[in-house]
């Protein structure tokens, strides 16, 4: 009798890359549903465009690089990148924006750096930032939330806007500036935060409507941390640091700086903390390093929002901290068992 000679360990507890990625998708579902409820079916249209583009681009790149298609398409990593980007884009953005962003994310930010596991930057955020800097107008026209208009654009309107001719009137009717945008422009005009926040786009915590979306993302994110699919240290570090620094400045000058709950529950803070920053490939890997990495994103997000040139700073903050991740790892190695402290 002849047996296979593999090396130990001979048992595996069944985890796989595909399982990790699928769990991320499951965790995204509540937030995705909330987005549909608040902003209409636009996000689903964007998701469909992004996913098909991502899979096509992934298949193309895998073929070019001579990698087995089945194994690597089955890992769902392209699916996750596409969904993250689709959620980050305005629901009514024209289709070519999505295709361009997703293609850039998969082909350049992922595969040209060596594919799964080798990309130093979060591909979805690279795609997002490329779009944000190249097409600022298209990227800032967000659909107005349900709570503001009493209704959301139906599927036909959405498809027409995404794929068809985009007239200024129809667009104005269904979109509005985001709260972070509004806050930035109004403060720039010399209004105080309290004055600005009396505007109807603001809700109890953050932006009207966005609060619910963010709570849904929070639920999915917490589940993911519990499943240990995401490292809890990163969202904890990021949200903690964002809360601390915004509280400090808010206490110093409440007229110029928004309160911490506003920072936490508007824009991409929650979504970014649980779904963007926790991308393991580009994040820090040591326990302490993850806390520092998260905290760095939190601080940078606040800085970019408050004094930077863009309304939201999560994407830039994540990319900047991606650069720092290897260095953080270097200096935060855990104490080895048995080594003197």
């Amino acid at each position: 009798m002849q047996f296979a000679t593999t090396t130990s360990p001979h048992v595996h507890l069944g985890n796989s890359v595909g399982r990790v990625m699928r769990r991320v998708v499951y965790a995204l579902l509540p937030g995705l549903l909330a987005l549909v409820w608040i902003f209409g079916p636009g996000v689903l249209v964007q998701a469909a465009i992004a996913v098909s583009t991502a899979l096509a681009a992934e298949a193309l790149m895998l073929t070019l690089r001579g990698k087995p298609l089945g194994r690597f398409l089955g890992d769902c990593s392209a699916l996750v990148t596409a969904l993250l980007l689709a959620i980050a884009l305005p629901p009514l953005a024209p289709w070519w924006i999505t295709v361009l962003g997703t293609g850039f994310a998969i082909i350049i930010a992922k595969h040209l750096y060596g594919g799964l596991g080798y990309n130093p930057f979060n591909p979805a955020m690279i795609g997002y930032v490329v779009l944000l800097t190249s097409f600022p107008r298209e990227m800032s026209s967000w659909a107005a939330p349900l709570t503001l208009h009493g209704s959301t654009p139906d599927l036909a309107t959405t498809l027409a806007l995404v794929f068809g001719e985009r007239s200024a009137e129809t667009l104005d009717a269904v979109t509005s500036a985001t709260v972070l945008d509004l806050l930035r422009t109004q403060i720039g005009l010399g209004h105080s935060v309290t004055e600005v926040r009396s505007s109807p786009v603001f809700g109890l915590l953050g932006a009207r409507g966005w609060e619910w979306v963010n709570l849904a993302f929070l639920a999915g994110g917490l589940w993911m941390c519990r499943q240990r699919t995401a490292a809890w240290q990163i969202p904890a570090g990021m949200l903690g640091a964002l809360a601390v620094i915004s509280t400090l400045f808010w206490l110093v000058d409440a007229a110029r700086f928004a309160p911490p709950w506003f920072h936490l529950f508007s824009g991409a803070a929650i979504f970014g903390a649980f779904f963007i920053a926790t991308d393991p490939v580009s994040a820090s890997t040591t326990p302490r390093g993850r806390l520092i990495y998260g905290a760095g994103i939190g601080v940078l997000t606040w800085v970019i929002r408050s004094v930077g040139g863009f309304p939201d700073g999560v994407a830039f903050a994540v990319l900047l901290m991606n650069i720092a991740a290897p260095t953080i790892d270097q200096y935060t190695r855990p104490r080895v068992f048995g080594a003197r402290a």
Partner: peptide, 10 residues
């Protein structure tokens, strides 16, 4: 598959 640096091993 390639390492995705998930840190489960750690």
């Amino acid at each position: 598959m390639p390492c995705i640096r998930c840190g489960e091993c750690m």
